[in-house]
C-alpha cells in the first residue's frame, strides 16, 4: 500500500498558540514557530518537515480554533 502523504495548511492568524496540536501528532512534526508572531500576538503552529505528514487529521481534530486544513498529496508512481 502506498504511504499516504498529506499537507497541513494553517490559517496562521487564527492560531492562539495553545500547543494542543503539537501533542497529538503521531510523527511529531507540528511545532510552534518561535521566530514568528501572528496578528493575535502568539507564536503560531507550523510544520517544517511536511514530507513526513501522513494526513491523519489529529492536529486539525484537536485544534480549538479551526486553524488547520488538511489535504492529501497524490503519490508519484
Amino acid at each position: 500500500m502506498p504511504k499516504r502523504k498529506g499537507k497541513v495548511i494553517f490559517t496562521e492568524d487564527r492560531c492562539k498558540g495553545c500547543e494542543l496540536c503539537t501533542t497529538v501528532c503521531p510523527v511529531d512534526i507540528v511545532k510552534m514557530n518561535k521566530s514568528r508572531i501572528n496578528v493575535k500576538g502568539y507564536h503560531p503552529a507550523t510544520v517544517d518537515e511536511m514530507e513526513k505528514c501522513i494526513a491523519c487529521g489529529n492536529c486539525a481534530t484537536i485544534c480549538p480554533d479551526v486553524v488547520i486544513k488538511i489535504e492529501t498529496i497524490e503519490e508519484e508512481k
Binding site: G6, R14, K16, G17, C18, E19, L20, Y42, A55, G57, A60, T61, I62, C63, P64, D65, V66, I68, K69, I70, E71, T72
Partner: peptide, 24 residues
C-alpha cells in the same frame, strides 16, 4: 481534502482563551 472548516460555523473567530475546548 481530508479536513476543512465546516459550513456549520460562521467565519467569525472564537473569543475563547487559548486552548479552551469550547472551540472543539
Amino acid at each position: 481534502v481530508v479536513f476543512d472548516r465546516t459550513q456549520g460555523l460562521a467565519e467569525k473567530q472564537f473569543h475563547y482563551c487559548p486552548g479552551c475546548t469550547h472551540g472543539i
